[in-house]
Design a binder for these strands. Structure first.
Lengths: 105, 105
DNA sequence: ACGAATCGTAAGTCACAGCTTACGGTAAGT
DNA sequence: ACTTACCGTAAGCTGTGACTTACGATTCGT
């Protein structure tokens, strides 16, 4: 939904592991949970959170459910950080200006 | 330091309010805490977390301490999301390809 | 139709992150 | 020197979120 949910979702280390696993492409739940330290239901819960945040997309494939990273959700968060970066640069430049003015007196 | 700390720092709503307040430029702690629902020490703790994550920079100004958004920290997080976005797009394209192949049989 | 596989949900436990009050430390004003 | 203002840290409490086990729902295979 909003970028806040995406950030909250990415804040958990286990969920970041899931994201890293999905970088190479879509995977079913079993493959995601394989090799992880937590149980499969825990993975399911995390997948739910990531999906609600708009970071993942599901595609039922017969018996299994394929999860994949949703480019749109990532892009939303990306755009937020872009505007934040712009403001930070502007504020930084203005602060440098005022400091220069102060030193010149 | 790493992008993980930045994400964790931005996951808290109160800290996001602080970030929004600093968008227009540097502010002392008192000005940041003014109008907020939490106490000033709580704000101090959040400022510590944000600073440790590399998202904020401090500049002592006489009696007060001016906090400002650190462009470098934001940029680091931005770059992580860029690579994640690239991988998501690649995976998405490959999935579409394979699906087309499957439908063409 | 029956058993097995894959996955989501419910219920309950527990550690951790955020908040508060209280205190200490430094800089400015008089 | 004394007081005031500004800010960080310590200690303690509390709610939220992550994890587990147990169960139910689909879907595939035979």
């Amino acid at each position: 939904m909003a970028y806040q949910d995406a950030i909250t979702a990415l804040a958990d280390p286990t969920r970041r592991v899931i994201i890293e696993k999905l970088r190479r492409g879509p995977l079913p739940v079993g493959a995601i949970a394989a090799g992880m330290e937590v149980s499969r239901p825990a993975v399911s819960q995390h997948l739910r959170v990531l999906s609600d945040a708009g970071l993942l997309a599901v595609r039922p494939e017969g018996n299994r459910r394929l999860y994949a990273i949703a480019p749109d959700g990532v892009d939303e968060l990306r755009r937020y950080l872009d505007t934040l970066w712009d403001d930070a640069l502007a504020g930084f430049a203005r602060a440098a200006e005022e400091k220069a003015k102060g030193n010149a007196k």
